[in-house]
Amino acid sequence: MSILVLADHDNEALAPATLVAVTAATKLGGDVHVLVAGEGSQAVADAAAKVAGVDKILHADDAAYGNALAENLTPLIVGLMDGYDALLAPATTTGKNVAPRIAAKLDIQMISEIIAINDDGSFERPTYAGNVIATVKTSDAKKVITVRGTAFDKAATEGGSASVEAISGAGDSGKSSFVSAEIAESERPELTSAGIIVSGGRALQSGENFEKIIEPLADKLGAAVGASRAAVDAGYVPNDYQVGQTGKIVAPEVYIAIGISGAIQHLAGMKDSKTIIAINKDADAPIFQVADYGLVADLYQAVPELTEKL
């Protein structure tokens, strides 16, 4: 068996979710190769070569791959798949964008966001906002799979010594082009790999209150900042803060939900956190049913006091 892992990266560093996909690949067994397709991405290929458990890096460096356009990556990867039994991609927005396109080209029914690989060759994946775990087996000869970023440990970033082979593909499809990106630069830890997350909901009422109330607590704890859909929809914080079924899936050591009711769509994104703390003024809020520690209080008093006393 040989497995190709699609690396998610920004041409400078590997996204941590890639390391999770590598672990899933080593669980499947066989040779593990990682494809780094990018532009000016030598540092990523070098970093990937050091990841424990990786046997070989395929490095495609071309302007066409710099922005991970699905139209350009797909022919490159489909061409490689002759030599592999499975493609594993992290379930990041890049992986979710590209993997189904490759699967359809190969006439494969993809398996989305696996959280477990069983000995009998079956896979477990969450459905219905994480309320139902489906165990599935595929009859396809090859597999295309995305791997949930919280489901397996990250492979070690040191210890590997994979060879790096430069490859090339057809380049630009002419169907799509990159115009611009608004990627927030933050000093805080990244949401999906943070050890502590402080999240705010609709109760924050404004972006200003997020800055005044949520951020100081996050900074005191060295935490990342997250949000509910309601807070994102209302424009208090950018879209990439959204935790949930249709946002980011997180599983930090500590998740602090402030002024968040605990809708199933929100719980889907954070209920695998090790410890959940909820602050809400409504004692009946569903968030308390999953919280290890709950504080029934007005957040406008309780949170500044908490930040102060820590």
Binding site: A134, Y293, G294, L295, V296
Partner: peptide
């Protein structure tokens, strides 16, 4: 179908913890 559903199950439930008295 290409996939066979071996089974579906509800995930392990998280138990509600404790309500703490105050910020302290």
């Amino acid at each position: 179908p290409r996939l066979t559903v071996v089974k579906v199950a509800e995930p392990a439930k998280r138990e509600a913890g404790e309500i703490v008295a105050d910020v302290e």
